[in-house]
Amino acid sequence: MRNPQLTRNGELQHLLTLDGLPKAILEQILDIAEPFTEVAEREVKKLPLLRGKSVFNVFFENSTRTRTTFEIAAKRLSADVINLNVATSSTTKGETLLDTVDNLCAMGADMFVVRHASSGAPYLMAEHLHATKRDHISVVNAGDGRHAHPTQGLLDMYTIRHYKKDFTNLVVAVVGDVLHSRVARSEIAALTTLGVPEVRVIGPKTLLPTGVERMGVRVFHDMHEGLKGVDVVMMLRLQNERMQGALLPSSQEYFKVWGLTPEKLARAKPDAIVLHPGPMNRGVEIDSAVADGQNAVILPQVTFGIAVRMAVMSMLAGG
């Protein structure tokens, strides 16, 4: 079966999900991202790789950090960046997703960075471009529904590799609202592909998807147990806006049981790193003492995210 993300030669054509992406490609993205981190220290923070290309940021759902870091990444590669906040434009007038795509192609788009509340929307766009013989135009998924957020997963992997060097001797815990989290799915897929021997998920039964064990993870319903001896703690945001029905008693109650406090973090290895995809809910899933503490690598994640997005975009645009 054709992998819609890869060309016939096995090179990256779109970035839709980390699930099923070969290890060699994941490693290639991380390797290419590394020299991009240095660009931020130059007098001229620009490389010519995407000169003359138009990158359309199409966000059907709100986002500040992801959209901004994609924009910075594209601009550092010299692309022309057009930001569309579709949530407030044509779709509200009734235009379909694929009509929007066709119109933006008619405006000369070379790449789409897309966020959508529906899982699979970027895939639909990529298939539409393929069906209409526009394979030279790439789609980057910037988060679709509960499905995937591949660049977030990649920047998390970059961060882990930066601090821990080797994936094959790590115990990694993904903590919190896995059920509603596209970030968690991308993280688990990448960690598994990169050879992390033990991936744990920790959370209340109501916020873990049924059958989560089938993703190759160990499941814990107790923070003290689950965090014991881990090297990496990957916190998830409590997705208030995705929460339907009474899955939780209250955010104070949640913090008491599932919030990452210094006491709970003490169960992890002393040199454990703490990641969070942002935006953080302080006092809900993470305590300020941890968020601002020495184990946190949350701000470096943001910086690395620019380099990782530069790597993805330049791999899609080149050759």
């Binding site: 090179e11 290639q28 390797d31 290419i32 590394e34 020299p35 981190t37 240095e38 490389l47 010519p48 790789l49 330049s314 791999m315 080149g318 050759g319």
Partner: peptide
Amino acid sequence: IDVAFYRDDFGSRGLHARPRKSD
């Protein structure tokens, strides 16, 4: 320096697998 990001054949050949950091 690694000139990978400034090559004029990027459009046809893409990036090579492991560019290094310029320093």
